[in-house]
Design a protein around this nucleic acid. Sequence first.
DNA 1: ATTATATTAAGAATAGTTACTATTATCGAT
DNA 2: ATCGATAATAGTAACTATTCTTAATATAAT
Lengths: 140, 140
Amino acid sequence: MNLNHQVEKKLKTSRQRNLILCVIRSTHCHPTADWIFERARKDMPNISLGTIYRNLNLLRDEGKIQELRFGNSVSRYDGDLRSHYHVRCMECGEVVDVPHIVPLVSSQQVEELTGYRIHKHRLEFTGLCPDCLKRLDNIE
Amino acid sequence: MNLNHQVEKKLKTSRQRNLILCVIRSTHCHPTADWIFERARKDMPNISLGTIYRNLNLLRDEGKIQELRFGNSVSRYDGDLRSHYHVRCMECGEVVDVPHIVPLVSSQQVEELTGYRIHKHRLEFTGLCPDCLKRLDNIE
DNA sequence: ATTATATTAAGAATAGTTACTATTATCGAT
DNA sequence: ATCGATAATAGTAACTATTCTTAATATAAT
């Protein structure tokens, strides 16, 4: 839950964690843990899936990557730390960034309406990507 | 994926499914499958958890309930079909509605920027509920 | 270099959910 | 009311994504 009133534990560097970070930064595809695992083991054949997950959580807690969770269960990760939104295709599952959209959401309004202290919000769009749109049009 | 070009299968009524719908409509707490299970078995002691899940999916596909998926994996369900947003407490997990907020999001803008055909969007807020806020203030 | 501690690989464990199977309930047509 | 077709059920097993455990190894501080 990391509310900043606990002492930060010093992380030792590890080749595995560095590799994982490189893998994430080298793609724009918002990869899943499994995708990262497959990619990482090309460079380091006996890295383990547990190591992937543990370090993804560490990197997320350190603030070096973003974890994206969409409706359908699997986590995806993003090396782009800037706050931005995503669209996911309901057919093929592809996830892409929504560029340059201004956050139109007033957290302050929500705080006034609910009494909650708002820390963040998530906005995600679901629809059909251009390829799937075309493909489905051809079928009908 | 239900894109409306397949034949709808006719559903038969069942006491279990009716009960599940009643349970969901009788609360505003955005219950989880497990909560619904515990509540339902008071009326129908040997209803099974599989029945709960199967019917939640059926009711969702029929459009009679909404499935809410927040970051942390467990699904919650909502009998209120009107499009509305939610806030979730990062401490206790409570989920409440954000009342009367107007959807400020322009799907059309996103379509223009990404080429996707947008079907829906999800907006959810995360923060601390009034109770947890107070409790945490007392600790410090 | 030695010591203390963090990190690892491997695999078992867990949580939430879905699938399978034999039986029972529902529904439309007689 | 009865029949035949098929959906729904309870109970259980299987599955998937993730976390935990453990013994061995790597790293940083002395």
